[in-house]
Write a protein that binds this DNA or RNA. Structure first.
Length: 425
RNA sequence: GGAUGGGUGGCCGAGUGGUUUAAGGCGCCGCACUUGAAAUGCGGUGGGCUAAAAGGCCCCGCGGGUUCAAAUCCUGCCCCAUCCGCCA
Protein backbone atom coordinates (compact mmCIF):
# COMPACT_ATOMS: atom_id res chain seq x y z
CA UNK A 1 0.00 0.00 0.00
CA UNK A 2 1.21 3.45 -0.84
CA UNK A 3 1.11 5.91 2.05
CA UNK A 4 -2.02 8.01 1.51
CA UNK A 5 -0.42 11.01 3.18
CA UNK A 6 2.54 10.76 0.85
CA UNK A 7 0.23 10.55 -2.13
CA UNK A 8 -1.62 13.65 -0.92
CA UNK A 9 1.60 15.61 -0.50
CA UNK A 10 3.40 14.35 -3.61
CA UNK A 11 0.78 13.39 -6.21
CA UNK A 12 3.15 14.20 -9.07
CA UNK A 13 5.81 11.77 -7.82
CA UNK A 14 3.22 9.01 -7.56
CA UNK A 15 1.82 9.82 -11.00
CA UNK A 16 5.27 9.61 -12.58
CA UNK A 17 5.90 6.25 -10.93
CA UNK A 18 2.59 4.93 -12.27
CA UNK A 19 3.46 6.10 -15.78
CA UNK A 20 6.83 4.39 -15.55
CA UNK A 21 4.85 1.21 -14.93
CA UNK A 22 2.83 2.03 -18.04
CA UNK A 23 -0.29 2.94 -16.11
CA UNK A 24 -2.13 6.12 -17.03
CA UNK A 25 -1.68 7.79 -13.68
CA UNK A 26 -5.37 8.68 -13.53
CA UNK A 27 -5.77 6.39 -10.53
CA UNK A 28 -3.92 9.01 -8.51
CA UNK A 29 -6.53 11.67 -9.21
CA UNK A 30 -9.36 9.28 -8.39
CA UNK A 31 -7.76 8.64 -5.01
CA UNK A 32 -7.19 12.33 -4.37
CA UNK A 33 -10.78 13.37 -5.04
CA UNK A 34 -12.24 10.52 -2.98
CA UNK A 35 -9.84 11.32 -0.18
CA UNK A 36 -10.90 14.93 -0.16
CA UNK A 37 -14.54 13.95 0.02
CA UNK A 38 -13.84 11.45 2.77
CA UNK A 39 -12.03 14.01 4.90
CA UNK A 40 -14.86 16.48 4.52
CA UNK A 41 -17.38 13.91 5.74
CA UNK A 42 -15.03 12.72 8.42
CA UNK A 43 -14.69 16.19 9.93
CA UNK A 44 -18.45 16.62 9.93
CA UNK A 45 -19.00 13.29 11.63
CA UNK A 46 -16.21 13.98 14.07
CA UNK A 47 -17.90 17.21 15.19
CA UNK A 48 -21.29 15.56 15.51
CA UNK A 49 -19.86 12.78 17.63
CA UNK A 50 -18.12 15.30 19.83
CA UNK A 51 -21.42 17.06 20.47
CA UNK A 52 -23.14 13.75 21.08
CA UNK A 53 -20.59 12.80 23.70
CA UNK A 54 -20.80 16.11 25.53
CA UNK A 55 -24.58 16.07 25.68
CA UNK A 56 -24.67 12.46 26.81
CA UNK A 57 -22.49 13.41 29.72
CA UNK A 58 -24.85 16.26 30.56
CA UNK A 59 -27.76 13.84 30.54
CA UNK A 60 -25.86 11.54 32.86
CA UNK A 61 -25.20 14.38 35.31
CA UNK A 62 -28.79 15.63 35.28
CA UNK A 63 -30.14 12.14 35.72
CA UNK A 64 -28.01 11.72 38.82
CA UNK A 65 -29.55 14.94 40.13
CA UNK A 66 -32.97 13.38 39.49
CA UNK A 67 -33.87 15.97 36.86
CA UNK A 68 -36.26 15.20 34.03
CA UNK A 69 -34.35 14.56 30.78
CA UNK A 70 -37.12 13.31 28.46
CA UNK A 71 -36.92 16.38 26.20
CA UNK A 72 -33.14 16.08 25.86
CA UNK A 73 -33.34 12.43 24.99
CA UNK A 74 -35.83 13.17 22.22
CA UNK A 75 -33.39 15.71 20.75
CA UNK A 76 -30.54 13.27 21.13
CA UNK A 77 -32.41 10.64 19.17
CA UNK A 78 -32.39 12.99 16.23
CA UNK A 79 -28.66 13.61 16.63
CA UNK A 80 -27.94 9.91 16.94
CA UNK A 81 -29.83 9.29 13.72
CA UNK A 82 -27.72 11.89 11.91
CA UNK A 83 -24.54 10.32 13.20
CA UNK A 84 -25.67 6.88 12.06
CA UNK A 85 -26.50 8.09 8.56
CA UNK A 86 -23.23 9.92 8.19
CA UNK A 87 -21.41 6.87 9.48
CA UNK A 88 -22.85 4.74 6.69
CA UNK A 89 -21.84 7.22 3.98
CA UNK A 90 -18.42 7.62 5.50
CA UNK A 91 -17.87 3.91 5.56
CA UNK A 92 -18.83 3.58 1.91
CA UNK A 93 -16.38 6.31 0.95
CA UNK A 94 -13.67 4.79 3.07
CA UNK A 95 -14.12 1.36 1.52
CA UNK A 96 -14.06 2.84 -1.96
CA UNK A 97 -10.92 4.79 -1.10
CA UNK A 98 -9.16 1.79 0.42
CA UNK A 99 -10.23 -0.26 -2.58
CA UNK A 100 -8.55 2.17 -4.97
CA UNK A 101 -5.48 2.51 -2.81
CA UNK A 102 -5.11 -1.26 -2.49
CA UNK A 103 -4.88 -1.55 -6.27
CA UNK A 104 -2.05 0.95 -6.66
CA UNK A 105 1.30 -0.78 -7.21
CA UNK A 106 4.31 0.21 -5.15
CA UNK A 107 6.30 3.33 -5.93
CA UNK A 108 9.28 2.54 -8.11
CA UNK A 109 12.77 3.38 -7.01
CA UNK A 110 14.28 6.17 -9.10
CA UNK A 111 16.98 3.82 -10.42
CA UNK A 112 14.46 1.53 -12.14
CA UNK A 113 15.01 1.67 -15.92
CA UNK A 114 12.31 2.85 -18.33
CA UNK A 115 10.59 0.28 -20.51
CA UNK A 116 7.31 -1.47 -21.07
CA UNK A 117 8.26 -5.16 -21.08
CA UNK A 118 11.07 -7.64 -20.48
CA UNK A 119 12.85 -6.61 -23.67
CA UNK A 120 13.81 -3.38 -21.86
CA UNK A 121 15.28 -5.16 -18.86
CA UNK A 122 18.90 -4.34 -18.21
CA UNK A 123 21.51 -7.10 -18.12
CA UNK A 124 23.77 -6.19 -15.21
CA UNK A 125 26.25 -9.04 -15.23
CA UNK A 126 26.71 -12.58 -16.39
CA UNK A 127 28.62 -15.49 -14.95
CA UNK A 128 29.90 -18.75 -16.37
CA UNK A 129 30.55 -19.96 -19.88
CA UNK A 130 27.83 -20.96 -22.28
CA UNK A 131 28.83 -24.63 -22.64
CA UNK A 132 29.78 -26.12 -25.98
CA UNK A 133 29.00 -29.74 -26.75
CA UNK A 134 30.57 -32.31 -29.08
CA UNK A 135 27.02 -33.53 -29.62
CA UNK A 136 23.62 -31.91 -29.89
CA UNK A 137 22.48 -31.17 -26.34
CA UNK A 138 19.08 -32.58 -25.49
CA UNK A 139 16.30 -30.64 -23.85
CA UNK A 140 15.64 -31.66 -20.25
CA UNK A 141 12.37 -33.41 -21.08
CA UNK A 142 14.31 -35.75 -23.36
CA UNK A 143 16.99 -36.35 -20.75
CA UNK A 144 14.37 -36.92 -18.09
CA UNK A 145 12.58 -39.40 -20.23
CA UNK A 146 15.77 -41.39 -20.89
CA UNK A 147 16.89 -41.25 -17.24
CA UNK A 148 13.34 -41.71 -15.89
CA UNK A 149 13.48 -38.59 -13.74
CA UNK A 150 9.87 -37.61 -13.99
CA UNK A 151 6.68 -38.91 -15.50
CA UNK A 152 4.47 -36.23 -17.01
CA UNK A 153 1.70 -38.60 -18.07
CA UNK A 154 1.16 -40.07 -14.62
CA UNK A 155 1.46 -36.70 -12.90
CA UNK A 156 -1.17 -35.46 -15.28
CA UNK A 157 -3.31 -38.52 -14.64
CA UNK A 158 -3.48 -38.05 -10.86
CA UNK A 159 -3.72 -34.25 -10.78
CA UNK A 160 -3.67 -32.64 -14.20
CA UNK A 161 -1.17 -31.29 -16.68
CA UNK A 162 1.43 -29.13 -15.03
CA UNK A 163 1.60 -31.33 -11.96
CA UNK A 164 4.84 -33.25 -12.01
CA UNK A 165 5.47 -36.74 -10.76
CA UNK A 166 9.18 -37.00 -10.05
CA UNK A 167 10.57 -40.51 -10.09
CA UNK A 168 13.79 -42.28 -9.08
CA UNK A 169 16.83 -40.00 -9.28
CA UNK A 170 14.56 -37.16 -10.29
CA UNK A 171 12.65 -37.42 -7.03
CA UNK A 172 15.87 -37.70 -5.10
CA UNK A 173 17.41 -34.74 -6.93
CA UNK A 174 14.42 -32.59 -5.99
CA UNK A 175 14.80 -33.49 -2.34
CA UNK A 176 18.57 -33.07 -2.45
CA UNK A 177 18.32 -29.59 -3.95
CA UNK A 178 15.79 -28.46 -1.36
CA UNK A 179 17.91 -29.71 1.54
CA UNK A 180 21.15 -28.38 0.12
CA UNK A 181 19.73 -24.90 -0.58
CA UNK A 182 18.22 -24.63 2.90
CA UNK A 183 21.51 -25.75 4.46
CA UNK A 184 23.55 -23.47 2.24
CA UNK A 185 21.64 -20.28 3.02
CA UNK A 186 21.42 -21.19 6.68
CA UNK A 187 25.08 -22.04 7.19
CA UNK A 188 26.74 -19.71 4.76
CA UNK A 189 24.53 -16.65 4.87
CA UNK A 190 22.96 -16.92 8.31
CA UNK A 191 19.32 -17.15 7.25
CA UNK A 192 16.99 -18.61 9.88
CA UNK A 193 15.09 -21.60 8.62
CA UNK A 194 11.31 -21.73 8.91
CA UNK A 195 8.84 -24.22 7.48
CA UNK A 196 5.57 -22.34 6.99
CA UNK A 197 2.07 -23.53 6.14
CA UNK A 198 1.45 -24.09 2.43
CA UNK A 199 -1.91 -22.33 2.67
CA UNK A 200 -2.61 -18.77 3.69
CA UNK A 201 -5.71 -16.88 4.71
CA UNK A 202 -7.23 -13.83 3.06
CA UNK A 203 -5.51 -11.29 5.32
CA UNK A 204 -2.10 -12.76 4.57
CA UNK A 205 -2.75 -12.82 0.83
CA UNK A 206 -3.92 -9.22 0.95
CA UNK A 207 -1.09 -8.09 3.20
CA UNK A 208 1.55 -9.34 0.81
CA UNK A 209 -0.16 -7.72 -2.16
CA UNK A 210 -1.53 -10.87 -3.82
CA UNK A 211 -5.07 -9.62 -3.28
CA UNK A 212 -7.22 -8.06 -4.55
CA UNK A 213 -5.69 -8.09 -8.04
CA UNK A 214 -4.11 -11.50 -8.37
CA UNK A 215 -6.76 -13.73 -6.90
CA UNK A 216 -7.07 -15.52 -10.23
CA UNK A 217 -3.48 -16.71 -10.01
CA UNK A 218 -4.04 -18.61 -6.79
CA UNK A 219 -5.81 -21.86 -6.13
CA UNK A 220 -8.71 -21.48 -3.71
CA UNK A 221 -10.91 -23.82 -1.74
CA UNK A 222 -14.63 -24.28 -1.96
CA UNK A 223 -15.02 -25.14 1.71
CA UNK A 224 -12.57 -22.73 3.33
CA UNK A 225 -11.49 -19.13 2.75
CA UNK A 226 -7.89 -20.13 2.14
CA UNK A 227 -5.42 -19.95 -0.71
CA UNK A 228 -2.68 -22.35 -1.72
CA UNK A 229 0.40 -20.19 -1.44
CA UNK A 230 1.92 -19.12 -4.78
CA UNK A 231 5.29 -18.62 -3.07
CA UNK A 232 6.73 -18.93 0.44
CA UNK A 233 7.13 -15.15 0.29
CA UNK A 234 3.48 -14.91 1.26
CA UNK A 235 3.39 -16.80 4.59
CA UNK A 236 6.92 -15.77 5.62
CA UNK A 237 6.54 -12.06 4.90
CA UNK A 238 3.31 -12.08 6.91
CA UNK A 239 4.96 -13.74 9.90
CA UNK A 240 5.09 -10.52 11.91
CA UNK A 241 1.83 -8.93 10.78
CA UNK A 242 0.59 -6.60 13.49
CA UNK A 243 3.85 -6.86 15.41
CA UNK A 244 6.55 -4.42 16.38
CA UNK A 245 10.06 -5.75 15.73
CA UNK A 246 13.07 -4.73 17.75
CA UNK A 247 15.27 -2.29 15.85
CA UNK A 248 18.48 -3.95 17.04
CA UNK A 249 17.51 -7.35 15.62
CA UNK A 250 17.03 -5.95 12.10
CA UNK A 251 17.74 -7.05 9.48
CA UNK A 252 16.01 -10.40 10.03
CA UNK A 253 16.67 -13.01 7.38
CA UNK A 254 14.63 -16.13 6.80
CA UNK A 255 14.91 -19.06 4.44
CA UNK A 256 11.93 -21.29 3.78
CA UNK A 257 10.99 -24.16 1.55
CA UNK A 258 7.44 -24.58 0.33
CA UNK A 259 5.73 -26.09 -2.61
CA UNK A 260 4.25 -23.24 -4.65
CA UNK A 261 0.96 -23.37 -6.47
CA UNK A 262 -0.02 -21.22 -9.44
CA UNK A 263 -2.96 -21.53 -11.73
CA UNK A 264 -1.04 -19.89 -14.60
CA UNK A 265 -4.39 -19.15 -16.17
CA UNK A 266 -4.00 -18.04 -19.75
CA UNK A 267 -0.41 -19.23 -20.00
CA UNK A 268 -1.22 -22.49 -21.75
CA UNK A 269 1.05 -23.28 -24.66
CA UNK A 270 3.66 -20.69 -23.77
CA UNK A 271 6.97 -22.18 -22.60
CA UNK A 272 5.15 -25.09 -21.09
CA UNK A 273 7.32 -27.99 -22.24
CA UNK A 274 8.71 -30.20 -19.50
CA UNK A 275 9.45 -28.25 -16.34
CA UNK A 276 9.31 -24.77 -17.84
CA UNK A 277 5.92 -23.73 -16.47
CA UNK A 278 4.06 -25.89 -13.99
CA UNK A 279 1.18 -25.50 -11.55
CA UNK A 280 3.03 -26.87 -8.56
CA UNK A 281 6.72 -26.40 -7.98
CA UNK A 282 9.24 -26.44 -5.19
CA UNK A 283 11.08 -23.30 -4.19
CA UNK A 284 13.45 -22.18 -1.49
CA UNK A 285 12.69 -18.59 -0.68
CA UNK A 286 14.68 -15.87 1.06
CA UNK A 287 12.84 -13.18 3.00
CA UNK A 288 14.29 -10.20 4.84
CA UNK A 289 12.89 -7.59 7.21
CA UNK A 290 15.08 -4.50 7.35
CA UNK A 291 15.22 -0.93 8.47
CA UNK A 292 14.30 1.45 5.62
CA UNK A 293 17.81 2.77 5.12
CA UNK A 294 19.22 -0.76 4.81
CA UNK A 295 16.83 -2.25 2.31
CA UNK A 296 18.48 -1.41 -1.00
CA UNK A 297 21.86 -2.61 0.23
CA UNK A 298 20.18 -5.78 1.53
CA UNK A 299 18.63 -6.34 -1.89
CA UNK A 300 22.14 -6.47 -3.35
CA UNK A 301 23.30 -9.11 -0.86
CA UNK A 302 20.06 -11.02 -1.33
CA UNK A 303 20.57 -11.37 -5.07
CA UNK A 304 24.24 -12.30 -4.51
CA UNK A 305 23.14 -15.00 -2.08
CA UNK A 306 20.84 -16.42 -4.74
CA UNK A 307 23.60 -16.19 -7.35
CA UNK A 308 25.90 -18.28 -5.19
CA UNK A 309 23.45 -21.14 -5.48
CA UNK A 310 23.61 -21.02 -9.26
CA UNK A 311 27.39 -20.68 -9.17
CA UNK A 312 27.73 -23.72 -6.91
CA UNK A 313 25.56 -25.61 -9.39
CA UNK A 314 27.99 -24.45 -12.12
CA UNK A 315 25.31 -22.98 -14.35
CA UNK A 316 25.82 -19.96 -16.61
CA UNK A 317 23.49 -17.13 -15.73
CA UNK A 318 22.81 -13.45 -16.04
CA UNK A 319 21.35 -10.98 -13.62
CA UNK A 320 18.90 -8.52 -15.11
CA UNK A 321 17.34 -5.46 -13.60
CA UNK A 322 13.63 -5.25 -14.35
CA UNK A 323 12.29 -2.18 -16.10
CA UNK A 324 9.26 -0.22 -14.91
CA UNK A 325 6.79 -2.07 -17.08
CA UNK A 326 7.97 -5.52 -16.04
CA UNK A 327 8.41 -5.05 -12.30
CA UNK A 328 6.04 -6.75 -9.86
CA UNK A 329 3.09 -5.10 -8.11
CA UNK A 330 4.66 -4.86 -4.66
CA UNK A 331 8.25 -4.23 -5.67
CA UNK A 332 10.10 -0.92 -5.79
CA UNK A 333 13.09 -2.53 -7.47
CA UNK A 334 13.73 -6.05 -8.65
CA UNK A 335 16.34 -8.30 -10.21
CA UNK A 336 15.82 -11.58 -12.02
CA UNK A 337 18.36 -14.34 -12.38
CA UNK A 338 18.16 -16.14 -15.71
CA UNK A 339 19.98 -19.40 -16.28
CA UNK A 340 21.05 -20.65 -19.69
CA UNK A 341 19.41 -23.89 -20.81
CA UNK A 342 21.37 -25.22 -23.83
CA UNK A 343 18.88 -27.99 -24.64
CA UNK A 344 15.80 -25.79 -24.68
CA UNK A 345 17.98 -23.03 -26.11
CA UNK A 346 16.74 -20.24 -23.90
CA UNK A 347 17.28 -18.31 -20.71
CA UNK A 348 15.14 -19.51 -17.83
CA UNK A 349 14.08 -17.29 -14.95
CA UNK A 350 14.97 -19.15 -11.76
CA UNK A 351 14.91 -16.28 -9.29
CA UNK A 352 13.29 -12.94 -8.80
CA UNK A 353 14.58 -10.72 -6.00
CA UNK A 354 12.54 -7.72 -4.91
CA UNK A 355 12.69 -4.89 -2.44
CA UNK A 356 9.08 -4.18 -1.53
CA UNK A 357 10.10 -1.27 0.72
CA UNK A 358 7.25 -0.46 3.14
CA UNK A 359 4.52 -1.52 0.69
CA UNK A 360 3.78 -4.90 2.27
CA UNK A 361 4.72 -3.78 5.78
CA UNK A 362 2.04 -1.07 5.63
CA UNK A 363 -0.60 -3.59 4.55
CA UNK A 364 0.56 -6.06 7.17
CA UNK A 365 1.29 -3.48 9.86
CA UNK A 366 4.78 -4.73 10.64
CA UNK A 367 6.75 -2.00 12.38
CA UNK A 368 9.83 -1.27 14.45
CA UNK A 369 10.62 1.55 16.83
CA UNK A 370 13.25 3.82 15.38
CA UNK A 371 15.67 4.41 18.27
CA UNK A 372 16.79 7.76 16.80
CA UNK A 373 13.33 9.32 16.53
CA UNK A 374 11.54 7.17 19.11
CA UNK A 375 8.77 6.73 16.52
CA UNK A 376 7.19 3.57 15.17
CA UNK A 377 8.01 3.07 11.50
CA UNK A 378 7.23 0.40 8.94
CA UNK A 379 9.99 -2.08 8.20
CA UNK A 380 11.03 -2.83 4.65
CA UNK A 381 10.42 -6.33 3.32
CA UNK A 382 12.44 -8.15 0.67
CA UNK A 383 12.07 -11.48 -0.97
CA UNK A 384 13.93 -13.53 -3.50
CA UNK A 385 13.97 -17.05 -4.80
CA UNK A 386 17.00 -18.92 -3.64
CA UNK A 387 16.03 -20.60 -5.99
CA UNK A 388 13.02 -22.11 -7.79
CA UNK A 389 13.62 -25.76 -8.55
CA UNK A 390 12.03 -26.92 -11.80
CA UNK A 391 13.85 -24.58 -14.16
CA UNK A 392 17.04 -25.04 -12.14
CA UNK A 393 16.68 -28.79 -12.55
CA UNK A 394 16.05 -28.28 -16.26
CA UNK A 395 19.18 -26.14 -16.65
CA UNK A 396 21.23 -28.51 -14.51
CA UNK A 397 20.29 -31.50 -16.62
CA UNK A 398 20.87 -29.66 -19.88
CA UNK A 399 24.18 -28.05 -18.94
CA UNK A 400 25.74 -31.08 -17.29
CA UNK A 401 24.63 -33.75 -19.76
CA UNK A 402 27.41 -35.99 -21.03
CA UNK A 403 28.04 -37.67 -24.35
CA UNK A 404 27.20 -41.03 -22.77
CA UNK A 405 23.71 -39.81 -21.82
CA UNK A 406 24.48 -39.40 -18.13
CA UNK A 407 24.30 -36.16 -16.17
CA UNK A 408 27.23 -35.00 -14.08
CA UNK A 409 26.33 -33.64 -10.63
CA UNK A 410 28.10 -30.58 -9.28
CA UNK A 411 30.24 -31.42 -6.20
CA UNK A 412 27.92 -29.64 -3.75
CA UNK A 413 25.13 -32.11 -4.53
CA UNK A 414 27.23 -35.28 -4.31
CA UNK A 415 26.88 -35.67 -0.52
CA UNK A 416 23.13 -35.18 -0.84
CA UNK A 417 22.75 -37.61 -3.75
CA UNK A 418 25.33 -40.19 -2.84
CA UNK A 419 26.48 -40.45 -6.46
CA UNK A 420 28.57 -38.28 -8.79
CA UNK A 421 26.38 -38.66 -11.82
CA UNK A 422 22.87 -39.63 -12.78
CA UNK A 423 22.76 -42.56 -15.13
CA UNK A 424 19.96 -44.66 -16.52
CA UNK A 425 21.26 -47.72 -14.68
C1' G B 1 -16.58 -31.50 15.19
C1' G B 2 -18.84 -31.06 20.56
C1' A B 3 -18.64 -29.06 25.75
C1' U B 4 -16.80 -25.63 29.28
C1' G B 5 -13.87 -21.46 30.75
C1' G B 6 -11.21 -17.38 28.97
C1' G B 7 -9.30 -12.89 25.62
C1' U B 8 -8.87 -5.41 29.09
C1' G B 9 -2.45 -1.14 28.03
C1' G B 10 4.81 -3.75 27.77
C1' C B 11 3.02 -7.45 31.87
C1' C B 12 -0.54 -8.70 35.95
C1' G B 13 -5.31 -7.26 37.02
C1' A B 14 -10.20 -4.32 38.59
C1' G B 15 -14.37 -3.06 36.06
C1' U B 16 -21.90 -6.14 34.36
C1' G B 17 -25.12 0.60 30.98
C1' G B 18 -23.80 7.15 32.61
C1' U B 19 -17.87 11.27 37.39
C1' U B 20 -13.89 5.38 33.21
C1' U B 21 -10.54 11.30 30.56
C1' A B 22 -9.79 2.43 31.68
C1' A B 23 -8.79 1.77 39.07
C1' G B 24 -4.58 -0.51 41.32
C1' G B 25 0.04 -3.01 40.94
C1' C B 26 4.56 -4.49 38.29
C1' G B 27 7.98 -2.93 34.70
C1' C B 28 10.23 1.18 32.20
C1' C B 29 11.87 6.58 31.83
C1' G B 30 12.94 11.27 34.32
C1' C B 31 13.71 14.04 38.77
C1' A B 32 14.68 14.44 44.15
C1' C B 33 17.25 12.30 48.36
C1' U B 34 22.37 9.54 48.51
C1' U B 35 29.68 9.21 48.11
C1' G B 36 27.32 5.26 45.10
C1' A B 37 23.56 1.68 45.17
C1' A B 38 19.21 -0.02 47.37
C1' A B 39 14.98 1.82 49.60
C1' U B 40 11.73 5.94 49.44
C1' G B 41 9.13 10.18 47.35
C1' C B 42 7.31 13.04 43.09
C1' G B 43 6.21 13.15 37.93
C1' G B 44 5.78 10.67 33.32
C1' U B 45 4.93 6.29 30.48
C1' G B 46 -0.01 2.68 24.04
C1' G B 47 -1.62 3.05 18.99
C1' G B 48 -4.36 5.21 14.87
C1' C B 49 -7.16 9.02 12.11
C1' U B 50 -8.00 14.20 11.44
C1' A B 51 -6.40 19.33 11.93
C1' A B 52 -1.81 24.85 10.27
C1' A B 53 -2.30 24.62 15.50
C1' A B 54 -5.18 24.25 19.79
C1' G B 55 -8.01 20.49 19.78
C1' G B 56 -11.43 16.61 18.22
C1' C B 57 -12.54 11.51 17.15
C1' C B 58 -11.58 6.11 17.19
C1' C B 59 -9.35 1.57 19.43
C1' C B 60 -10.84 -3.14 25.95
C1' G B 61 -9.75 -10.25 20.42
C1' C B 62 -12.48 -8.92 15.40
C1' G B 63 -17.17 -7.50 12.85
C1' G B 64 -22.35 -6.33 13.17
C1' G B 65 -26.54 -4.71 16.38
C1' U B 66 -29.49 -2.44 20.65
C1' U B 67 -29.34 2.51 23.30
C1' C B 68 -29.60 9.53 24.09
C1' A B 69 -25.15 6.79 26.09
C1' A B 70 -21.52 0.20 25.47
C1' A B 71 -15.23 -2.57 27.96
C1' U B 72 -20.20 -3.62 30.16
C1' C B 73 -26.29 -5.87 26.86
C1' C B 74 -27.46 -8.93 22.11
C1' U B 75 -25.33 -11.44 17.81
C1' G B 76 -21.76 -13.71 14.26
C1' C B 77 -16.74 -14.92 13.84
C1' C B 78 -11.48 -15.60 15.41
C1' C B 79 -7.89 -17.09 18.94
C1' C B 80 -6.16 -19.52 23.66
C1' A B 81 -6.83 -23.28 27.64
C1' U B 82 -9.03 -27.80 29.38
C1' C B 83 -12.01 -32.10 28.45
C1' C B 84 -14.54 -35.38 24.85
C1' G B 85 -14.85 -37.32 19.82
C1' C B 86 -12.23 -38.19 15.23
C1' C B 87 -7.55 -38.68 12.90
C1' A B 88 -1.61 -38.86 10.25
Amino acid sequence: MIDLKYLRDHPEVVRLSMRKRKHSGDEVDAVLSLDEEWRRLFTRQNNLRSEQKKRSEEIATRKRNKEDVTAEIVEMKELAQQVRELEVTLKEKEEALQGLLAKLPNLLHSSVPEGSDDSANLCLRSWGEIPSFSFTPLPHWELASRLKLFDLERGSKVAGSGFILYTGWGAKLERALINWMLDFHGRKHGYQEVFPPFVVNRETAFGTGKLPDFEGQMYTFTNADLFLNPTAEVPVTALFAGETLKAEELPLSYVAYTACFRREAGAAGKDTRGLLRVHQFDKVELVKFTRPEQSFAELETLVRDAEEIIQALELPYQVVELCGGDIGFGAAKAYDINVWAPGAGKWLEVSSCSNCTDFQARRLNTRFRNPESGKLEFVHTLNGSGVALPRTVAALLENHQQADGSVRLPPVLVPYMGVERITSA
